[in-house]
Design a binder for these strands. Structure first.
Lengths: 149, 149
DNA sequence: TAAAACTATATGTATATGCATATCTTATTG
DNA sequence: CAATAAGATATGCATATACATATAGTTTTA
């Protein structure tokens, strides 16, 4: 009755588990955010742009831990939807600064209660302490990945 | 010195945290798997196909919690690379069964030690108990998402 | 200062992902 | 049994993601 060694991969794989939960939560958020016309990726990028006030595309990719080319394309989606606009940096014309438009700001405020509702549901159902513990563990995993030799 | 309410979103958002770690780990795996020509998504799909022996595309999408259309396309990548082949089901000609080729099986065995090395590193560094706890918590989150009203 | 090195952004290519929908096949039902 | 419902797969479309590389601008250095 011995189980194949591949059994444990299916059950235990950190990557698969993280990817699955990540996909599911992304999907749930995208469904709930539908009325706002935002995807969760876009919402989260808007939060970052709002929070950091003045941010170039590569700074944005840094803080969001995205590849620069991904950040460029994701910003383009936001531009197409008129949620952000970009301006050439006055001191470095290679650089582009990203800003929220008034539409983007409105969307940010429109989507936040939806974000909050799911977030609170998760935090409440697994408990505040457990949730903090989850975040710390994820940070630990992130650290291991970043420092992988 | 009051912080904006958006600060806590940046720090605490379950979706963003999960997506970030998931992206990072995917990236690390894809780099390490480079010599095999597999991506981690493809590897994990091969493991599932191997483990379940006989599996239609929609069954595959079920066990991997992927959309059926995503499963179809991901299988197509594996077919293009000759890692799997498909046969029409004998009893239901709508259905397609997916099987590993010998190349696919070889790739599976080639990639598994690479998967294992990272997996063990993570488990060891955060500790076996903590890791089990992480998996349980992720399952809990998955459950909350699946049963969201 | 001119050449070289570095930095910021963009583009081509490929995979991953899901929604809406189409097509074809099997199952159900009046 | 014919009509309808249900199921399996595929396709069009759009976004997300990263790598390799190109292009353009800035900084460093010989």
């Amino acid at each position: 009755m011995e189980k194949s060694k591949f059994d444990s991969i299916l059950q235990a794989c950190a990557c698969a588990n993280l990817r699955t939960v990540s996909r599911s939560l992304t999907k749930l958020y995208n469904q709930l955010l539908q009325p706002t016309g935002l995807k969760i990726t876009q919402y989260y990028m808007l939060v970052n742009i709002y929070q950091y006030k003045k941010l170039s595309i590569s700074e944005l990719s840094d803080v969001m831990m995205l590849d620069q080319t991904t950040a460029t394309r994701n910003v383009n989606v936001l531009i197409r939807n008129k949620f952000v606009h970009v301006e050439k940096d006055e001191h470095d014309s290679r650089s582009k600064c990203v800003f929220l438009t008034s539409i983007g700001l409105k969307k940010l405020y429109e989507a936040t209660p939806i974000w909050m509702k799911v977030q609170e549901k998760i935090e409440n159902e697994i408990g505040t302490d457990n949730y903090q513990y989850l975040l710390r563990t994820l940070t630990q995993v992130q650290h291991i990945i970043s420092h992988y030799d």
